[in-house]
Every structure is written in C-alpha cells, then in structure tokens.
Write a protein that binds this DNA or RNA. Structure first.
Length: 923
RNA sequence: GGGCGAGUAGCUCAGCUGGUUAGAGCGCCUGCCUUACAAGCAGGAUGUCGGGGGUUCGAAUCCCUCCUUGCCCACCA
C-alpha cells in the first residue's frame, strides 16, 4: 500500500534504483538515423568531460541545468536528444599515464610510441568510465545510446577529413615560428593554454661594448641567459641618445666558445625600441622571443637557437652548454659582474607565462608547427553572432566573445605528444616534401620514394572537440541525424571554455557546415550552419565563503559526497535555485539542508495524500488516479479552495514556462518551491482537510458518498500529481518514486519523465476563487497576529467579531469552518460599526476583534501601532505628494495613477484605523 | 595596458527595458509535539539599495564621478 512510506524521506534508499532504471530501460535514448517523425527536436551536446576527470560541482551545475531543460522539453513532447561523451584530453591523459610509467621506473620514450599508446588505451578502458558512472548517479537524462569518445574511429576519421579539407582550402599551413614551448611536456601549446602570472622578478641592465673599443651601450633584459642568442641590439631611430651610434658593431660578451672568438652583432634602429622603457636599447634574440622574432624578420637577422626542448643551453663549445636556463642565468650574471658589465639589477613586475597543464615556465621557442589561418574562420564566426544566429545568455558574454574574436591570432594546432589524433601529413625522407592526405600515400608525389613517414605531431585536443556538433551526427556522411539535429539548439557551459571550445565550435561549425546542403537540398545559409542557436554560460560554483574551490585550499566540495548526505534532488535544487545568470554560486550546505527539507515536505505531503486515499477507499469511494490530462472546467459543486489551487497551478505553470524559456533556473525553481510549500501545503492541504470527512462504514450499511468530498479528493490527487510532474525536471528522483507510488506500481507511463509537463491550459483560471481565498488568507493572518499579541494560547479557540464590506462578511460567514481550522475561531459575530481598541485590528476590507479576556500588552501594542502608523504615514505622504503633483498626473500612465489612488485610499483607511486604535489605548 | 562585471537584511542572492510602502532562502527572537511533516507549524524583528552629484512627475533601477571588489584578455625588452 502506498501509505506505508517511511515518515522521513531517505534519498539514499531510492536514488540508485531510479538512476539504474533510467539507464537500463534506455528511457532517454533516441533512435539513430531515423527520418524525422515530425516532432520538434531539442538537441544539446554535453560538454565532454576529460576522460581523466572526476565529477566536480561545476559538472553537476552544468548537468543539472541541462537536465532540467532536457526533461522539460521531453515532457513538452519534443524529441529531446542530449548527446554525452568524453574527451581524450591529450595532455592530461598522457601526463596521467606517464606518471604511472614513472612509478614503474620507466618512461614513454623507453616504451616507444606504439607500446605507449597501447598503455593509454589500457588505462582508458580501466579508469576512463569513472566520470560517466558518476554522471549516471546524477540522473542526467542523456542519450547513452549515442555516447562517444573523441578518439572513436568514426570521430577520428572525421578529424582527418576536416584537417585535409582545411589544408586543401589553404587554411592550414606549416612553418617555423616562435611558439609557446612547454619544456616539461616538451610540446608547443596554444596561446590559450598559457597562463600569465604577475610576479616580481628582476630586470638587468647589461653593458655591451662596441667592437671598436669606442665605448658601449647598456641594454635592459629580464632574461639575461638569452643573450647567448643575441644577433643585434636595436634602439629607436628617434632616440637622440643613440642616433649617432646606429650602425656600430657590438662585441657580444660571453659569446666566445671553444676555439671561436666572441660574436659581433650590429646596433640597429627599429621602432620597436621604446626610448622610455629600460635603457631604450633592446637586445634581439629572434629564436627565443616573439617580438625579437619580428624584428629579426624586418632586418633579415639570423635566428640562433640556443636552447633545447628541455630549456637547457644547447651551444656545444660554450661554457654554458648543457646548463638549465636558470642555472645559466645565474652563471652568466656572475660572469658579467666579474667583467664589470652588469650595470644594474632592479625589481621588476612582469607577467610570467606558464603552461596551464604542467605549470612550467613557457620558453618561447622557434619550431616547426602546424597552424590554422584563423581570420577567414573568425569572420564567419563573428558574423554568426552579430547577425543574431547565435544568442548568448547572459548577453554580456557576446562582448567578451567579440573582443577575443576580433583580436585573434593563428591557432597552433600541432602538439609534440603521442596521445591524440595524429596529423595526416606524410614526409618524404628522400626529397623532404610533405603531403597531406586522408590515407598514407604509396609513394612520394615528387620523387616517387616509397617509404613516406607520417608526421609525428598530434592535433590539439580542442581541434577535435571543436568539430563535435556535427561529427557526433555522422559528418562528413550526410546522415538523417545530421539533417534532423544540426544545428543543435543549445550549448550550456562555463565561461572558462568560451574561447577554447565555444568559439572554436562556432568557427569550425560555420566553416564546414556551410558546405553541407539543407535537408531539402537547398544551399545552407549561415543561420543554419551555426553549431547551436543559443549559448547559456553558467557561473562558477564557489564555496560558501565565495572562495574558488581548489585542491590546495582544501575547500573542494565533492558532488557525490554531498548528494550522499542530502540527496541528489536537494543538491540539484540548490544549484538550480542559485543559478542566476552572471553571478557565481556560493554553495552553502545550509541552503542544501533547506532543500532537503523541501524534499521531505513533498514526501510527507504524499504520505498525507496516500492516507486520505486509503481512508476514502475504506469509506467506499472509488479512486481514479489518471489525472495527467487537462482538467477543463470544474464541476459546479467544486469547493472554492480547490478552484483556487487549480487557478494557482495555472499561474505557476505560466511562471515556470516563462522562466525556463529564459534560462532562469532560479526563478523556475523558486516558483515551484513557493507554490508547493507556500500554497499547496500551507493553505490548500489545511483547507481541503475540511472536506475530507470519511465516516466509518458500519457492517451491512451502504456507504454514503458526499459529492463535495469526492470532488475534493479528486482535486487533491490531481493537483498533487500535476505538482509532481511540475517538479520532476528539478527533482527527478523523488518525483519518480512518489509518482510510481501514487499509481501503485501501475502507472500509465514508464516514467514520470515521459509524461506531459503541466501546461497553463490544463488548469482553469478562476479570479473569483483567487480573490476570495486571498481575502480569507488576509483575514486569517490578521486574526492569527492578533491572537498572538493578545496572548491567546495556541490551542485555545476564541470568538471573533467582524465588521467590514459586504463581500468580506459574506466570505467570513460562508467559511466559518476555515476560520475555525486555520485561526482557531470558535464563533463569528458581525458588528455594524468600525471596531477599534486594543483587541481589534484592521485589514483593507474589514476590522476584526478577538474576544478574549486577557488584556493586551499595552506598551507593546503602542509600539506596534506607532511603527505601523509611521510606515503608513510614509506611504501616504509619498502617495499624496505624487497625487498632488500636476506633472505626475499629466505625465504618468493612467494605470499607474489609478493604482496609486486605490492604494492611497486603502492606506488612508488603515492609517485612520491604526490612529484610532492608538488613541483608544489606555494611558 | 585593454575589456567585462559586482557592491541591496547578519549570510547567500533576486529585483535593475524607471511606476504603488524593496523581496526570497538560510540565520535570529517568541510560542506551539494542531494525528502528512519538529527536516514541522504559527507569529515577529531586521535594509538612509557602496558614497556624492545629475536626468525625471517619479530612481535600487538611467547618466556622471569617486570608493571597494572580482574576473578575462595582453608579445613591452
């Protein structure tokens, strides 16, 4: 029997069961490559977590938001397709396995490329599923039938295809350029993978003597070790101090190597040198600094590489050969000082570039890399957002996006790693030609050599993930899925990958999909080439003190641990209710406790309901549970509170619908919370108890059925069932459990997730009922407050005397039972005159007196009334000021004036009554 | 150096396309085990909306300025 629910809600007892059920039953799977069935699809791509990842609160927030939307759209009857997958995460995964190897006393080079890759796959099959297992525990309603891994064969083929096409289109080039070099990973990384850290370092002024012995020039540098690679010194052509010296030759200190004399380098003029900075003279090291590289190009200078891949000096014959860069710096400074060439050392704040993954200080390095010529892609990506084909929420992120996109640099896509998509380029060892092809060519196209070697570099992980919105649907093949599901509707993600991923998807999506015709064969336009139509950027989840969560601070909240304590639904609700766009979430357990209480409230409301159902059955009432259909008009005899709660349900569904359309998860969550707790539980359940009278059926007697009771019970069940459906996108576990319990294991659908989401049109609005209940609530609240101040004991009933307008009196008269139940009113009597005095209080349409012998606390009442009068006076003054203002009356809209007038007269009334009450107080 | 935000009750945050007397949750105070729920019920207190100036009939909301604070981007030796 359903009423045998435990008294308190225990999420741990039910959640795993439903999580398993949803996956096992493939409830959220959609058929692959089927022609459209005419339904509107709702398509989202889950931002693929790294295969090495563990679930954190950011994931949980992301998945909660996406799941609310996926479930909502699904319940609206749309084909909700939410594609999950994991990213191979080149650097992260390779690091993970290399760490293992190190512990075993070996390394990847010893193992060799093939064996190493085998190890990585082995690692992946063993540990790679951790994060998806955690996702399943969250109840994310993703389509597991479409789960992918970015290194899957089909996706890898698509990556190759994309690379080859870009190369054919002249958008990929290879060349020797200065890149951000990570000396620990020994790979190039893109600009985005570099973090700049403000650090107080030193700036050194070094004296470079002229070769002719005619003097010297002092240069400034923060990296003195790079002087070994200097090929020139430049000064600004307008710099009066140095104008005359330009053209002189410098004898570069410390550059003498075994058997070789010191190198001589020229002093040149270049705009780059800013007279006001440092000494105004800049040393030029083209192979180890991006600016110097440019200078070098302008003056056709040599590019002298002096460091190896591990940032050790690589200058055979030099005394510094083999030294680590910092050791070399130390030695060089010592040697310069010994020669009297170290002029000055000053503190200097600079932004040190470090590698995001390894933390290594980036060493700019000249090396052969692959790049994407980004401008043509960026142009389309900018247009897509400018023209409104992609909408950002919150909109301010569009500004950030434009800012970055308009200052974009070519993207270095090659990585000197082993784990990843290997670049489909082939080098001829004989003639040195490189060709790009989908498959390995038999022979070199230039010299016919037979043994071409594939490029050893792999692609930046973000290259493949940037293609996902179309590759997951089968691109480059023209599939039904692609026709139906591209563009996806929405991307939900964090701002941290706005450039890494979002921007790249937009660039690659608009680029490649523009070439794919529309399902009807027509040419695709930019608006349909975009990878998604909406981007919702969510906040960062911080700890309760607004601190960023980090391992070093030890304030990381583990979602799995927290859901074990509070239940997944409570944690989801916490995140949703805080998810106000543009604001970070300070995750506090206190709040989660509050929502656990909410879950418990729902649970207990269900217990109450089930108890009533059992009582009704015992009394011979027939119960039908199928309430998921529109309610339509209510029968004549339907009591007012049931009319009211249906009208409220109508209003709250409007609110939720509006909020979710705007991605206002907080507003949606607050609306359902307020409705369920503040209205359904606090008022409706209490009121409906008055109708639920089930007399005991004696042996042999025919049960007597009260139609009002029957309709109330049906209303109660109907509203509760609708509430469960309304709540289910937010709290899928609890609602699934209770919904199945309500139908006693024989529900009309396999899951509440497959039912219809409550719609405004399902529930009749009823202004009369709403205003009646509102007035009764006001009356009850007034009586409750008065009783409290009079000191009437909680349990004791007291009679009231009421005076007021006809409508209010009629309501009070007709609903004495409500007053009795909710305000402990023992009897209602009517007065013909205004009621004042210490035991009376006024509402807008009434005065009410509670008859009770104990006198009120006069000083307390005086204080209360004084405060109230002050507040009313303030409001009154404000209103009067406005209403006496000609300009206001002339310019303000009519409805505002009307509203103010009405409010003014009501306030005046309350003010006068309060004033009278105060004056009536005994001295 | 450039860009984008934030400052509202003790705490975390709504409200900000200007319009009635600024809200919620948590916390706090008081009284209640009222047979769905003490993870509960009822009642209560709490804010010159960061400071200053301006626009307007009307400003938490728009503009200027200052203060405090966060984030992103950046090749200044």
């Amino acid at each position: 029997m359903p009423n045998e629910l435990p008294k308190a809600y225990d999420p741990a007892a039910i959640e795993q069961k439903w999580a398993d059920f949803w996956v096992a039953e493939k409830l959220f799977d959609t058929p692959l490559n089927q022609p459209s069935d005419g339904r509107k699809p709702f398509v989202m791509l889950l931002p693929p977590p790294n295969v090495t990842g563990r679930l954190h609160m950011g994931h949980m927030l992301n998945q909660t938001e996406m799941d609310i939307l996926a479930r909502w759209h699904r319940m609206l009857g749309e084909e909700s397709v939410w594609v999950p997958g994991t990213d191979h995460a080149g650097i992260a995964t390779q690091m993970m396995v290399e760490k293992q190897l190190k512990a075993e006393g070996t390394n990847r080079k010893e193992l060799g490329r093939d064996a190493f890759l085998e190890r990585v796959w082995q690692w992946k099959s063993q540990y790679g599923g951790a994060i998806t297992t955690q996702m399943k525990r969250l109840g994310a309603s993703v389509d597991w039938g479409r789960e992918y891994f970015t290194m899957d064969e089909n996706l890898s083929n698509a990556v190759t295809e994309a690379f080859v096409r870009l190369h054919e289109q002249g958008l990929i080039y290879r060349g020797s350029y200065i890149v951000n070099w990570d000396p620990i990973q020994q790979t190039a990384v893109s600009d985005l993978e570099v973090e700049h850290k403000e650090t107080v370092g030193k700036i050194y002024h070094l004296r470079y003597p002229f070769a002719d012995g005619s003097g010297s020039i002092v240069i400034a540098t923060t990296r003195p070790e790079t002087m070994l690679g200097d090929v020139a010194v430049v000064v600004n052509p307008e710099d009066e101090r140095y104008k005359a010296l330009v053209g002189k030759t410098i004898k570069l200190p410390l550059s003498a190597a075994a058997g070789k004399p010191a190198r001589e380098i020229p002093l040149l003029a270049d705009e780059w040198a800013k007279p006001e900075f440092g000494t105004g003279a800049v040393k030029v090291t083209p192979a180890h600094d991006p600016n110097d590289y440019e200078i070098g190009k302008r003056h056709s200078l040599a590019e002298l590489t002096i460091m190896d891949e591990t940032a050790h000096i690589d200058l055979p014959g030099s005394p510094y050969h083999g030294l680590d860069r910092y050791e070399a710096r130390k030695r060089i400074l010592e040697d310069l000082e010994a020669q009297g060439l170290l002029v000055e050392v000053k503190d200097h704040t600079l932004a040190i570039a470090t590698s995001q993954r390894s933390g290594a200080v980036i060493e700019p390095r000249l090396s052969m890399q692959w790049f994407i010529k980004i401008q043509p892609l960026a142009d389309k990506a900018i247009a897509a957002v400018e023209e409104g084909h992609i909408k950002f929420t919150p909109p301010m992120y569009a500004k950030t996006y434009f800012e970055w996109m308009r200052n974009i640099h070519d993207w270095c896509i090659s990585r000197q790693l082993w784990w990843g998509h290997r670049i489909p380029a082939y080098h001829c060892p004989q003639c040195g030609t490189t060709c790009v092809a989908k498959t390995r060519p038999e022979r070199c196209g230039s010299c016919d050599h037979a043994e071409l070697q594939q490029e050893t570099d792999v692609l930046d992980t973000w290259f493949s993930s940037g293609l996902l919105p179309f590759t997951v649907f089968g691109w480059p093949e023209p599939t039904e899925d692609s026709a139906k599901f591209y563009p996806t509707d929405l991307l939900v993600t964090g701002f941290d990958i706005l450039f890494f991923w979002v921007a790249r998807m937009i660039m690659l999506g608009t680029h490649f999909m523009l070439d794919v015709p529309m399902p009807d064969g027509s040419k695709r336009e930019l608006k349909d080439a975009v990878p998604f139509r909406d981007v919702y950027i969510h906040a960062l989840v911080r700890d309760a003190d607004r601190q960023k969560m980090s391992k070093t601070k030890g304030n990381v909240i583990d979602p799995i641990e927290i859901i074990e304590r509070f239940g997944t639904d409570a944690v989801r609700f916490t995140l949703a209710s805080q998810a106000s766009p543009g604001t970070d979430i300070a995750f506090s357990e206190a709040r989660t406790e509050g929502y656990r209480a909410f879950a418990n409230k729902i649970w207990n409301a269900a217990r109450f309901l089930f108890l009533q159902i059992d009582r009704a059955r015992t009394a011979g009432y027939k119960m039908t549970m199928g309430a998921a259909n529109p309610v339509g008009a209510l029968p004549e005899i339907t009591p007012i509170e049931t009319r009211w709660i249906f009208a409220r349900l109508n209003a709250v569904t409007v609110e939720v619908d509006k909020a979710l359309k705007e991605y206002r998860f907080d507003e949606a969550a607050n609306a359902v919370y307020q409705f369920f707790w503040g209205e359904f539980c606090d008022w409706y359940l209490e009121l409906v108890k008055l109708r639920l009278d089930f007399p005991e059926v004696k042996e042999g007697e025919q049960p007597i059925q009260n139609p009002e009771t029957a309709i109330s019970l049906a209303g109660l069940v109907g509203v509760f069932e609708a509430s469960l459906r309304l709540l289910s996108p937010f709290m899928p576990f609890l609602t699934e459990e209770l919904w199945h319990a309500l139908y006693e294991g024989k529900p009309y659908a396999k899951s509440i997730a497959l039912t219809r989401f409550p719609q405004p049109s399902d529930f009749p609005a009823d202004d009369t009922a709403v205003s009646a209940i509102t007035t009764l609530q006001e009356l009850i609240n007034t009586i409750r407050g008065l009783r409290k101040d009079l000191g009437v004991p909680e349990k004791e009933a007291a009679p009231i005397l009421i005076h007021g307008d006809h409508r209010t009196l009629a309501l009070a008269d007709a609903h004495r039972d409500m007053l009795a139940k909710l305000a402990r009113v023992s009897d209602v009597d009517f007065a013909t005159e205004t009621l004042t005095g210490t035991d009376a209080r006024s509402g807008v349409g009434f005065d009410v007196r509670v008859i009770y012998e104990r006198q009120i606390d006069v000083p307390a009442e005086r204080e209360r009334l004084t405060k109230e009068i002050a507040k009313l006076t303030k409001g009154l003054e404000a209103a009067n000021r406005q209403l006496c203002n000609e300009a206001f009356l002339a310019k303000a809209p009519a409805n505002v004036i009307e509203g103010l007038k009405k409010q003014q007269s009501e306030t005046q009334l309350l003010h006068d009554k309060a004033k009278a009450a105060l004056e009536a107080l005994p001295a």
